[in-house]
Write a protein that binds this DNA or RNA. Sequence first.
DNA 1: CCACAAAATGAATGCTCATTCATTCGATTA
DNA 2: TAATCGAATGAATGAGCATTCATTTTGTGG
Lengths: 199, 199
Amino acid sequence: MKTADKHSKIIRAATKVFAKKGFFNARISDIAKEAKVADGTIYLYFNNKYDMLLSVFEEKIGKLVEQINTHLEKEEDPRRMLEIFIANHLREMKKNRNLAEVIQIELRQTNKMIKDYRNNKFSEYLDIISTIIKRGQAGNVFRQDVLPGIAKRAIFGAMNEVARIWNINIDSEYKVEEIESQVIKIFLIGILEHPEKSD
Amino acid sequence: MKTADKHSKIIRAATKVFAKKGFFNARISDIAKEAKVADGTIYLYFNNKYDMLLSVFEEKIGKLVEQINTHLEKEEDPRRMLEIFIANHLREMKKNRNLAEVIQIELRQTNKMIKDYRNNKFSEYLDIISTIIKRGQAGNVFRQDVLPGIAKRAIFGAMNEVARIWNINIDSEYKVEEIESQVIKIFLIGILEHPEKSD
DNA sequence: CCACAAAATGAATGCTCATTCATTCGATTA
DNA sequence: TAATCGAATGAATGAGCATTCATTTTGTGG
């Protein structure tokens, strides 16, 4: 087996184990077993346990970034772009529960670390949202008084929390499409029945 | 010192240490030192480490529930109620960073546990949001097609993620009032400039 | 002031892993 | 076939830390 294969085999195993047990309860030996590899082998590919988590996270988010960039490539309308982003994110989370878990874990884990890691994939991912918003504001599609730096977080946070529905079985009666359209609508037009009366 | 005092002294210390180090990196001895108490004393008040985290969480969220219920008591307008909820949550998170951290930690921690813990304070807290929404729908203030069970999560998730701004110093140029009004507006009227063109 | 109980202490225990590294494997080359 | 060397192995190490509990301190009622 080639080196690259083994590396990604370990990443896959780690994702699964981290997702299932959380970072601190995951044993290196669990991951090794899952990857069908000796414990020591893992240290040929990663410096330490935390390095694995970082790698897993960067790789997964990196894929999300690529994927969404591809989807957005030909789209011009900021509104559609936002819809695509939200739909894509939610579908991925639903499809791959481990991914959703790992994002949560790493997000908590890194919290204090993230300061040092400027150029990381995660900020890149978040910034896609704010870029869309700025673009929409330039085209007068989105309100000018929305702060893109806040909105990107609000949107990401909402999606993330909503996606947890699929990881805890409660409320699992909701379908992806339903949730998707809910989130999109809420962010586009809000929840007021008569928004014209606002401000 | 009376028992009740010591109990809450430990809770306070635990909140601080959990917030600073995270659950798994927090040592019982750290908490004991912070509370100016012997390691063993902690076990007179809590069954084990995880029990402490649960207690901390329940107590903190419990206070939030009480607080927000008081604030909402005399309010009749669902729209105002939602505004009050959001403002209150964000202000508390800003005021007490440890609280924000601990919520995150416990949220991750419990993820799988929470299934077993139906009647917990956290669901109670979330349900205040959905109750407000249902009320607004009954009064035709909020759109009928909003699913309260989804919206409550979206709102909570957004607030939580936005509140992280204060825990990682980046972007700390934002003021509470600014963020408050952003989040409220986004959820009430969305980000579209011309929402009437929707659907 | 004493006797007793309750509360508090913190050193000792014992277990759990992350990490290391001496050894083995297996592919390649001559 | 033998020599070489990078990759892989997994048992052994040792540090870290939650929890326990024998002992001490504090509080109370007579």
